Simulated scan of single mutants.
Amino acid sequence: MNMEATRRRLTEKQADTVDRLTKAAMDVLAQEGFAGLTVRMVASAAGVGTATAYTYFSSKEHLVAEMFWRRLAATDAPVSESADPTARTLLVLRQIAMLVADEPALAGAVTSALLGTDPDVAHLRLRIGAEIRRRLIDALGDRADGETVETLELLYAGALVRAGMGYASYAQIAEQLEKTALRFLQP
C-alpha cells in the first residue's frame, strides 16, 4: 500500500516527520478529544514546528483522516479459507468496523473528520472508499455486482456513523452490521 501523505510525495525525512505527527496526534487525541485537538498541539507534541505540520496536514480533520487511512492500509484484508462469499464478506465488514474499536477517541474523531469538507479529507475519503470497495469485491467474488457492493458500502458507512454518534459501541455496531449484511446477502 502507498503510505505517502495525501498532499505531496515524501522523502524519507519527510515521511518520518509525518509518522511522528500521526503518532503524536494519537496521544493528543487521547488526552484532549477531537474537539480539543489542534494541529498546533500535535506539532508541539511531535517536536515539529506548526508551519511544518501544516505543510503536511491542512486541518485536524485531514490529520485524523490520514491516521485512519494509514490504519486501514496497514491492515491486510482478512484471509478466509471459506468458499462462501457471504462468510468472507462478513469477515471483511467486521474487520473494518473494528479497526478503531479499541481506541474510542480515534473512533469518534474519524467519524467527524471524514464528514468534513476539507479537500484533502475528500481525497482520503476516496482512497478509503476505494480500498473498502476492493476488499468487498474480493470477498464477494462472483457475487460482486454494483448494487450489492453499493448496498454493503451504505450499510458500513451508516453503521460507523451510528457508532461515531455513540448509539452503541463499535463491537455492538459490528455485530449489528454483520446481522444486517447477512439478511441482505442470504438468498
Rank of each mutant, 00 (worst) to 15 (best):
M1T: 08
M3H: 09
E4M: 10
T6I: 13
L10P: 04
T11V: 03
D16H: 12
D19N: 15
R20Q: 08
K23W: 04
K23H: 14
D27N: 09
D27Y: 05
L29T: 03
L29P: 02
L37K: 03
R40V: 07
V48A: 07
G49V: 11
A53F: 06
F57P: 02
S58A: 14
S59T: 14
L63Q: 05
W69L: 15
A73H: 06
V79D: 11
V79K: 13
S82H: 05
T86F: 00
T86N: 01
R88V: 01
R94N: 04
A97S: 09
E103K: 13
E103H: 13
L106I: 04
V110Y: 07
S112H: 13
T117I: 06
D118Y: 10
H123W: 14
R127V: 14
R127H: 10
A130D: 15
R135T: 10
G141K: 02
A144Y: 04
E147N: 10
T148W: 05
T151D: 05
E153M: 15
A157T: 15
A159F: 07
L160I: 13
L160R: 12
Y170G: 07
A174F: 05
Q176M: 15
E178G: 01
K179S: 11
T180Y: 08
L182D: 10
F184K: 06
L185A: 02
